[in-house]
């Protein structure tokens, strides 16, 4: 066994080139809180580690086009201290801030949480609910894809072998909007979601839901956008009938497995419970 090459490019082009040249033998590293653990456990054996933190803009949060652009390597701690982001997207920030311990928060990034491609990643349902878009760049140039299209199965992504996730774009936030993320863990922290649910809602002046996106995690091979659940809420005031319809849509979308973290039946039930609760918190945050 030989050593591992460590590269820390300072431009995106340089990073794309290094990734392409490694021909599948490289792994990108942001905070390293997943990658380094996998390497130590022998589950990842890259020949090259490409650290993207020195690329300008990869650890920034910028207001842009009425929304935000968040560099892919931005840590949970930085997200948590950004007042404007917290105000506009409290659900995304609370989701990112649930990952790991205080120490892990200082390193673990939003981009890494998505690109680790775990169906239980906490920030992903919140980002999907927010209609966040990924900005990716590779040798074929730059493109934008919705977050829900990035993961394709546990550990697998739709990105090309030399494509790098550069940033997330969050859309402008209309008035009377709110989001929330909830997860179930048997403990209070330092755990992995048995189920997660992210909801983002926008209301009109009368308190009627105008737009809704609902996403659930850890109940299928990837985090899911449950379009039917959002549609169940649109046009309603989140009355019991609408919530029951949302439950049905969420339950129908769940395709969980039974494993050490929970049974399929339990996960489906809890997905509905958490989606409801998150929707009610999102409404309260929207001031509707």
């Amino acid at each position: 066994m030989s050593g591992v090459d460590y590269l820390s490019p300072t431009t995106i082009a340089e990073a794309v080139k290094a990734l392409g040249q490694a021909g599948g033998g490289a792994r990108l590293m942001a905070g390293g809180t997943d990658l380094l653990v996998q390497m130590r456990g022998g589950r990842a054996k890259p020949q090259t580690v490409i650290d993207i933190k020195r690329i300008p803009g990869l650890m920034d949060i910028r207001a842009e086009g009425g929304g935000f652009v968040i560099g892919a390597a931005t840590s949970g701690a930085v997200l948590g201290e950004h007042a404007a982001l917290r105000k506009a997207w409290p659900g995304i920030v609370e989701a990112a801030n649930l990952i790991g311990s205080t120490q892990v928060q200082g390193r673990a990034s939003l981009g890494g949480n998505l690109c680790n491609a775990s169906p239980a990643a906490d920030s992903v349902p919140a980002l999907i609910a927010a209609a966040a878009v990924c900005i990716v760049e590779g040798s074929n140039g730059r493109r934008e894809i919705p977050v829900e299209k990035v993961q394709i199965s546990p550990g697998k992504m739709s990105l090309a072998p030399d494509e790098i996730l550069i940033a997330f774009r969050l859309p402008p936030r209309p008035a009377k909007s709110g989001d929330a993320y909830l997860r179930l863990i048997p403990r209070t922290e330092m755990d992995i979601a048995v189920v997660g649910a992210g909801v983002s809602l926008t209301f009109d002046a009368s308190g009627t839901c105008m737009a809704a996106r609902v996403s659930v995690g850890a109940v299928a091979p990837t985090a899911l956008l449950v379009e039917g659940a959002g549609m169940a809420l649109v046009g309603s005031k989140l009355d019991e009938g609408a919530l029951a319809k949302m439950d049905a849509a969420v339950a129908a979308a769940c395709k969980p497995i039974s494993d050490k973290r929970g049974t399929a039946e339990y996960r489906t039930k809890i997905a509905c419970v958490l989606a409801r609760r998150a929707a009610l918190i999102a409404r309260e945050r929207a001031g509707a």
């Binding site: 048997p186 403990r187 209070t188 922290e189 330092m190 755990d191 992995i192 494993d259 050490k260 973290r261």
Partner: peptide, 16 residues
């Protein structure tokens, strides 16, 4: 054994 780690062998943490 499916849960040979502190992540999935759920001992209480201080905040529990």
């Amino acid at each position: 054994l499916d849960n040979a780690s502190f992540l999935d062998y759920r001992m209480p943490v201080a905040s529990d």
